[in-house]
Amino acid sequence: MAFDIDKYAAGSERLGWDDLDLEHFRQNPLSPETLRTLRYMADVEYHTVCYTRDLLTTPSHKDGDISTFMTMWNREEFWHGEALGAVLEVHGITVDYDALRASRLKLGWRDRLDPIKQSMLGKIVGSDFVAVHMSWGAANEWSAVSAYKRMADLETDPVLGELLRRIAKQETRHVAFYVSQARERLQKSKRAQKLTRLLLSKFWAPVGSSIMERDDVQFVFGQIMSGVEGRKEMKKLDNNIASLPGMQGLTIFEKALDGLGVAA
């Protein structure tokens, strides 16, 4: 099914939470574990624009649909960060611009060379790389939906649950865009399929891996993806990826969770 980009753009709104009583957390504070995971998610959301940078160095930005999507998507993700930031704020945890900058500065050399590497890769394989970009985005957005839904199920707090479900709802629209793009582009080119398969299996890592400390990554994925239910969710994610043209049999999520030592 084709994704209606005009409809998406017209309906794109910043996430609202004015009707939710965040002050309720003052009497019913969230656990430190939950706050740690929320902090991780807020950081990832705020850093979306940095991922955009890596993606924009490929030929993708010249495509009208893609640049329209990126404009709206960037802003929606920014507001996911703001929403989670508001919850943290009530708990006395401040996510300010300087703190975010500090974590971006930590990225150092590896990060600096990333757009160069990506862009050269982009030039070499031309438009096939757009298919990689779109498949990558699909994997990330799929995992965002799972993470927010799992978190909402695990949490008993009704206010947090509602907020997370609202975020998850926007994430499903992101999935729809990336998947429709990825499918179409992979379908058209065997070379794009091969390249995507290679890069996903070699380089894909859960969102946030490149910007957060490893023990944060382990902690967060342990919290939301461990146990029987977590593994079930993981299988679902791998099946989603495997449903893309040429991606049959890939198990990137399983590999990632095993690599992080997340208990089954």
């Binding site: 705020y46 624009v49 940078r53 924009l56 300087d98 975010l100 900058r101 990225l107 757009p115």
Partner: peptide
Amino acid sequence: LRNLLVTATHKDA
């Protein structure tokens, strides 16, 4: 945005 983000500008939140 592409031209700005490949530089240190993206570090400034």
